[in-house]
Every structure is written in C-alpha cells, then in structure tokens.
Design a protein around this nucleic acid. Structure first.
Lengths: 190, 190
DNA sequence: TCTATTACTGCACTCAGTACAACAAACCGA
DNA sequence: TCGGTTTGTTGTACTGAGTGCAGTAATAGA
C-alpha cells in the first residue's frame, strides 16, 4: 500500500490517482495480465520508479478498495472495538459505487494463482487483526488453538460473504446483509 | 506440481529427487530467499529448464509435503469420502519424520508475503475440495452462502490445527490430534 | 539565499517464469 | 538393424516484476 505524508519537502503531484486511473482503464482494455507496469506508468505520464513509490507490487492495484477497508478495520480494532462491531462498522461504510478492480479482473482472468495468492495476503491480515481483537475482548490465550480456529472461522465467514456479495453483483444487496447471514452461521459463542 | 509418467519415451533421470535434495540443503545453508533456482539446479547438476519440467514455481519446493497431502485428500474426496472422513484419513497418513521445508523456512523468513501467498494457493485448493465434498454429502446448494461459510470454517480449522502442529514441534503430538480438537470447535451440524 | 526534506526520474541490475528449437535415450514395429 | 515415435533434457533468448541507488526538482522554513 504505502500511504500517509508529511508536510515538509516537495509536495506530491497527483501521481497516485493518475496511476490508479490509468491502471483501471488499461485493465479494462487489455486485462490485468495483459498490462505491464510500464504500460501503466507510460499512460499515467509518470516514471516506473514513481509507481513503486506508491505501490509495493502490481497486484496492489487490484486490492485498493479492499486494502482501504482493511485499513479501516485495523483502526477499529486498534480503537478497542469488539470484532463483530468492527466488522459491522466497516461493512456499513463500504459502498457499491465502484466495482473493485479485482472483481472485474476475476471475471476476465478466472481465479488464477496470482490473483488468489495476492488475495490471501489480505485474508491473512484480516485474520491477524481478528485474533488481536479476540484476545482483547475475550479470555482467549494469545497462541491457543481455539483462538486460531475462531479467528479463521470468522474470516472465513467474511470471505464467503464478500464472495457472495461480489457474485451477486455488488448493488443487489449490501455487503452488510451478506455478512449478517454469514456470521449467523458461525456459532461464535460456544 | 506435475507428476505421473508414461512408460514410453526416454526414462526420467533421478532429477526430481536430486533437485529436492539440493534445494533442501541450500535452503538450510542460505535460506529460501537467498537461494536462486540457478543455485539449486547447479548443485543438482541439472539444467534450469529441467527444474521447470518438475516444478511450476520456486515456492512449490516449500510445499512438497503439503501438496502430497492435498493430492491424497483430493483422491479421498473423489472416491466419495465424507469430508470429516477424508480429513481423518489424510491426517492419519501424515507422519512426523520430516520437517516440511515451509516450516524450517518460516522460522528463518518469518511469514513474509511470498510465503503467505504461496500457502494460500494450497488453502484455496483444499477449500474447493471441501466444497465439492459437502455438496456431495449434504443437500447444500453448489453456490450457496452457507456452503461457502461451512467450507471456509472447515478449512480454517484445518489451517489452525496445522499451524498448531507446526508451532508445537511436529513430533510432540500428531496432526490428527490437533485436528480433532480444532474440528470439535467448529459446530458443523447446525 | 541556503538548507533540509521529500517527490520524482533514469538506469542498471537480479531473478522468476515462459517459449521454443534442438538433442538424447528409450521403446516399437518392420 | 533401421526409422519413427515418444518423452526427458538442454541451451538460449526473452519478458516483466521488483530492487537499489545516485541524481535532480520542488517545496517550506531559517
């Protein structure tokens, strides 16, 4: 990802947005796999080095929206929210205005290994956050098996809900609704 | 992965084993990240092209043992085993003779993104298999949310058990024991 | 105007992964 | 024994992601 700034030094150009837009266009025209980072930076009118100033990898572009949500989730957890509250909060803030790039591309590419793999990096982050929240709110031992199982089930439910939300077309029902259904299936307490 | 052979044509040299051994040695000496495919093939006395004849990627080497287990799991599911039976069967066959490479390396590398990502490719495969088995054994709709949630919880439990097994040192308790504990926490039926 | 700080660029490099043509070793049927 | 077929192995050339770094540009503040 790579965010935040300081108010000293040369101010940023609009590079980040320009890059995102160029990428979105090109992914539509040529698909993710068919687009190189050079293509993107060229269209954005920016150097390749600048790309890596803003993103850590090519696949980061697919997950911009998800990463924002995760960032938000992280803040909630850090602020002491209970897991289910944090999930509900973030979900309520996720709109359906924009189709995440990863979705458009999974249609085109299928679920190839690269896409799947880059997705798990996010899953892993979420799961880690859930564990932290569970430890804070319950009497779960930090390294215990049951903590891991519970956290994995929760993130499993989130993934399932997210997948269903995507599969159904993001504007049919809200993510929050899918999450309600999914989390109800996971008997958390006992 | 890439396996199986036919009895026609030039017979295989012992390339595969040689490569695995060379890799195991080098990973110990220089770590996974510090070892290139060239290093490996050079020590194995084999060409680079041959490497990709046997493995699809560098990270495949880390997951040799896991991939074998998944292959077995796939067979069980294909043979009509119920999910829990398939899991139990595979688990009972997993020995603790050898420390999987991915474990040794996660000590050294921490859980870097590459390792995490390559791991999820496996998780995704397992989850897909679980879904297939659930569809076959229950009255679950192929694309339903509850199917996905249940499958994700099960694979979440498996991952947790696997992680605990690794973390505790593979020879302290058997994988099957950890799996029992983990799966008990997932109230599958309702 | 000088300085510190940050944004941006250019360039050279490493390495994973792909593609493909050529060669080697086995088997088979004639 | 001789081609022909099949499959394993090699060499080579290529693409493209990601890294490292030195150098330059633009700003704020002293």
């Amino acid at each position: 990802m790579m965010r935040e700034r300081r108010s000293v030094g040369r101010p940023r150009a609009s590079s980040r947005d320009t890059i995102e837009e160029a990428a979105a266009e090109l992914f539509l025209e040529q698909s993710y796999a068919g687009t190189t980072i050079d293509d993107i930076t060229q269209r954005a009118g920016v150097s390749r080095a600048t790309y890596f100033n803003y993103f850590d990898s090519k696949s980061d572009l697919l997950w911009i929206d998800a990463d924002q949500a995760i960032e938000r989730f992280s803040e909630c957890v850090g602020a002491g929210f209970k897991v289910l509250d944090a999930i509900a909060t973030v979900a309520s803030e996720v709109g359906s205005e924009r189709v995440p790039l990863v979705v458009a591309q999974s249609d085109v590419m299928g679920t190839g290994d690269e896409l799947v793999a880059s997705g798990f990096v996010r899953v892993a982050r979420v799961t880690t956050l859930i564990r932290a929240a569970l430890v804070a709110e319950s009497s779960e031992e930090p390294g215990s098996l049951s903590l891991h199982v519970r956290a994995n089930c929760l993130s499993g439910a989130i993934i399932a809900a997210w997948g269903a939300w995507i599969a159904g077309g993001v504007s049919r029902r809200s993510l929050a609704e899918y999450l309600n259904d999914a989390l109800a299936l996971v008997k958390l307490e006992q």
